[in-house]
């Protein structure tokens, strides 16, 4: 694959602004990430659970209260880190989208140049075609240019990077949704995937067993095999 292009489609000022914004988000996310990746949140959480050593005694009641009350300091910071990472992913997505549009716009310009070059000049020998004929000619020209462009390395790289950025953004959003679901006691996407995986594997085992003992030859009830 070709290397990623660094050229900003919006010019140097916009590029500088976008870079500053990304750096700011990156720094914020970096701080949160350092915090989250360290043992501090774990210890803070454990300490908070025991009332920071100030309120020992009624552990069960406090645990029940915590379960009802949701996250505390460490969780909040972790959530903050996840929000920041969504913002970074969004910024990256916008950047890749802009880069994609630059590459995707090239064939339109080439088609326009060619179309203008081919148009009959006013006062020329060729009569002007109707608008449908002109539109047809334009469509054909643009179609060829667009298809040719899609096969270029620039286009494929831009599209690949856009897909990567969009997927990353979606994955970060899912992280947020899972975090909120966990706080509310609602099954997360991951929980759902785990359940469906177990279900699929169970079915496979059951059907393999059926075949081994030869029961699959029995005609099951119609419409509910």
């Amino acid at each position: 694959m070709a290397e990623q292009s660094d050229a900003s489609p919006f010019g140097p000022v916009a590029a500088q602004w976008m870079e500053s914004w990304r750096a700011m988000l990156g720094t914020g996310a970096g701080i949160s990430e350092s915090w989250s990746n360290s043992m501090l949140p774990f210890i803070m959480k454990r300490a908070a659970e025991s009332g920071f050593g100030m309120a020992a005694g009624n552990d069960l009641a406090e645990a029940i209260e915590r379960m009802a009350g949701g996250p505390r300091l460490a969780d909040v910071l972790d959530f903050d880190r996840k929000l920041a990472s969504v913002a970074v992913a969004w910024s990256e997505l916008q950047s890749k989208l802009a880069a994609y549009h630059v590459v995707a716009a090239r064939p339109w310009m080439r088609a326009a140049e060619q179309y203008n070059a081919r148009r009959p000049q006013p006062g020329g020998a060729e009569p002007n075609a109707g608008w449908r004929e002109q539109l047809g000619a334009w469509n054909q020209l643009a179609n060829e240019e667009l298809i040719a462009n899609q096969r270029t390395e620039d286009f494929l790289v831009a599209q690949k990077q856009l897909l990567q950025a969009a997927t990353e953004f979606r994955a970060r959003q899912s992280d947020i949704a899972d975090t909120i679901a966990a706080v509310l006691g609602v099954p997360t996407q991951r929980d759902f995937d785990d359940v469906t995986r177990q279900l699929t594997e169970l079915r496979r085992e059951m059907r393999a067993l059926e075949r081994r003992i030869g029961t699959s030859g029995e005609p099951p009830p119609r419409g509910d095999a």
């Binding site: 694959m1 494929l156 790289v157 599209q159 690949k160 897909l163 990567q164 997927t167 990353e168 979606r170 994955a171 899912s174």
Partner: peptide, 13 residues
């Protein structure tokens, strides 16, 4: 033009 990891990430997401 995609990497295998791109496909995995897309599907897993």
């Amino acid at each position: 033009s995609l990497d295998g990891a791109d496909v995995d990430r897309l599907v897993d997401t």
